[in-house]
């Protein structure tokens, strides 16, 4: 291997790694606030790229139907529950989140996004569609069992992924898409050619890690979200609703997922089911940070990207085998670093 090849692989690795950083960060965010290992995050990314591609092709993206169906179900469930408890505030919030907001977004996507609309507008609507899916998923899948163990939540998350990918195949079809690049000509730094897309992904993942890290370390609002994961009742008693905290986490997850999809759409071909493997690679990264520490998780994700790049050079068929086997030493290291001790509080 020459230095040039290594440099190219390194660049590839960092670019891929940055994508996994975006994923790992969201996984840490969602886990610290809700204790859910949010496997479907990858699906949101794939759906985002597929949605944008559909807008580009002048179709109505299938996301619209997923959103409409999901919102309707969530509205029935949340509205029914609130009505049963005669909880007016709950009813109003359900009508807003699962009625008015999704309806407005769906109508916009149906009628206000012509084929010749500017790319930026299409991206904005894509973001709105995917972001809105986040809280709906939370309501349908996780909210009723929010107090369950992480293991039960993980099973639910995996089930949600299978549901999403099955409906994804139905509405998007089996073809892959690659969205058009939007950032202009590539940059040339010495011998390296770097697309602006890549720079965008790296920059946004860096900014994201920094922002989230600061938010949860420094701000009282960040701590309030964490409080909801530590003790649900305690959080309620200081005026932080655990449900609202979970919903917030999922809105952020949806938004970051949408942006990630738009950013990586031009870099790689995405299929309706690409999200799963993407999400798991992000997860391997997040594990390095014990699903809790943003910078460490980001480093882990970067490492996954690099390993993947070099693995595909040496043994491209076994690329995924190598990446997923990587989790074994990582887990081993984590189990040594944080032995599971059961201590009883006095």
């Amino acid at each position: 291997m020459t230095f040039d090849i290594a440099a190219v692989l390194f660049q590839d690795g960092v670019a891929n790694g940055a994508v996994y950083v975006l994923l790992a960060t969201v996984l840490v965010l969602v886990f610290t606030v809700t204790r859910i290992v949010f496997v479907p995050q990858g699906d949101l990314i794939a759906f985002s790229a597929l949605t944008l591609a559909a807008f580009e092709a002048g179709h109505t993206p299938g996301t619209v139907w997923i959103l409409a169906l999901g919102a309707a179900l969530a509205l029935i469930l949340a509205g029914g529950k609130a009505a049963g408890e005669r909880n007016l505030a709950g009813l109003a919030s359900a009508a807003l989140w699962f009625g008015a907001v999704p309806a407005a977004i769906v109508l916009t996507a149906l009628f206000l996004v012509p084929k010749e609309a500017p790319l930026l507008w299409k991206m904005a609507v894509t973001c709105a569609l995917i972001t809105c899916l986040g809280p709906i998923l939370y309501r349908l899948v996780f909210e009723p069992i929010a107090a369950a163990s992480p293991l039960v939540l993980l099973i639910a998350a995996v089930a949600a992924h299978f549901g999403l990918s099955s409906i994804g195949l139905h509405v998007f079809g089996a073809e892959g898409v690659r969205t058009p690049g939007f950032a202009g000509p590539p940059l040339v730094v010495g011998d390296l050619v770097v697309t602006r897309q890549t720079v965008g992904v790296i920059a946004s993942s860096l900014v994201l890690v920094g922002l989230l890290s600061l938010f949860f370390r420094r701000s009282l609002s960040g701590k309030a979200l964490l409080a909801a994961a530590h003790n649900r009742r305690g959080a309620e008693l200081i005026g932080v609703s655990a449900t609202a905290a979970g919903r917030t986490a999922f809105i952020v997850a949806g938004l970051i997922g949408a942006i990630s999809g738009i950013l990586i759409g031009p870099m790689t071909t995405l299929y309706y089911d690409s999200g799963f493997i993407l999400g798991l690679k992000g997860f391997v990264g997040a594990i390095v940070g014990a699903l809790a520490i943003y910078p460490l998780a980001a480093l882990g994700a970067l490492l996954v990207g690099l390993v993947e790049a070099f693995a595909s050079f040496w043994a491209s068929a076994y690329r995924d085998v190598i990446v997923f086997t990587l989790i074994t030493p990582v887990l081993f290291w984590r189990s040594l670093a944080s032995p599971h001790v059961e201590e009883e509080a006095e």
Binding site: L151, L154, V158, L280, A317, Y318, D320, T328, L331, H340
Partner: peptide, 27 residues
């Protein structure tokens, strides 16, 4: 490697094992 850790780690380790196995025999 994983039984000492809390449950979701074992679950995810088996998931990764399954993917690895699939691609390994497939190639």
């Amino acid at each position: 490697i994983t039984v000492r850790m809390s449950g979701h780690y074992l679950a995810l380790a088996t998931l990764c094992f399954c993917i690895s196995f699939y691609f390994l025999v497939g190639n």
